[in-house]
Design a protein around this nucleic acid. Structure first.
Lengths: 173, 173
DNA sequence: CTGTATCCCAGCGGATACTG
DNA sequence: CAGTATCCGCTGGGATACAG
């Protein structure tokens, strides 16, 4: 079962170029990138993950211009990653704030994985931001497991094409 | 310890705009995006993760033009995510192939997280590609845990600024 | 406070053609 | 086979100014 020597996802069956998984949205990664594949989308989402809700806060903390922030936030709302939620402080007028939708919260592993990778990049003495488990203080780590709970290293991972009527992963569930 | 109502990373201490973590490479996420923040970088890496090594294969399968492929691959090599490894089939002349470096392999959780998210996006009857554990067939799932092994949901995660001489996570290791 | 509207430029990325 | 070179449109994203 050790597929090749060291570092690649096994293709099941070894699919060829004929499969053209590049074409219109085949690749799940590209579908994701269509939603969050810009720098501005990610930094705006980052601020919402950090608890910013009001437009002004998000914009200032994300460090982007209001123009692209507005445009990108609209796309994120359209993509059902964020929603604008009416909200009122007692005695204040009603405001809208941007909050993560259920789908947006599913980006959490992506956010953690991106931050973790950057955190462990060599850096020349600059400050950084580390994520930790609030309950125990230990560093957050993105892991790849299977639904059965096994930790899965790169060499034990397999990719299979799933057509609408077929089953994933060699037919086994 | 349940930080706020539902969906945000707790900031420890609640850092303000004064901290300007936006500035030059503070945010680890942005450092990562500097390396892999383009669509072409990701689709090229995807093909290398899928085992493609030769320039031609990568280009054709990734569906990008040779021009930008060459440019991006050079950047990925410069960023120490890929390396060009001389290689020879018996009886053939020596070739170069692109392979993941140790650092490149660390992108695995990011790749899985991006694919997993895209895989669970609503799609209209198109085919997709699913990742699974070669050993047991179960679907791959990106998880967020802490170094102590606890599974960490969004609401239990905390972010803290780490300056060169300080310790992460409220000083606890 | 929450955005819009313009202007502008750099870079991404496709197409096509060409070299060692 | 492994790239380069050139042309070019599109968009991302900064700056500045304005509007409800």
């Amino acid at each position: 079962m050790d597929t090749s020597e060291s570092g690649a996802i096994t293709l099941l069956p070894p699919f060829s170029d004929r499969d053209r998984w590049t074409a219109e949205g085949w690749c799940p990664m590209e579908r994701t990138l269509e939603l969050i594949g810009t720098r501005s989308a990610m930094v705006l989402l980052r601020e919402v993950f950090y608890g910013a809700g009001r437009f002004d806060d998000i914009v200032r903390r994300a460090g982007v211009t209001p123009a692209i922030a507005a445009k990108r936030l609209r796309q994120l709302v359209d993509g059902d990653l964020l929603e604008r939620k009416p909200y009122r402080d007692p005695g204040q007028r009603t405001r809208n704030e941007y909050v993560l939708t259920d789908r947006g919260r599913q980006l959490f592993p992506i956010v953690v994985a991106l931050m973790h990778f950057g955190d462990h990049l060599p850096r020349e003495h600059e400050a950084t931001i580390a994520l930790s488990h609030a309950n125990c203080g230990a560093e957050l780590v993105p892991e790849v497991r299977c639904a059965a709970g096994h930790e899965v290293p790169l060499r034990q991972s397999a990719a299979s094409i799933v057509r609408p009527t077929e089953n994933p992963a060699r037919g086994r569930r």
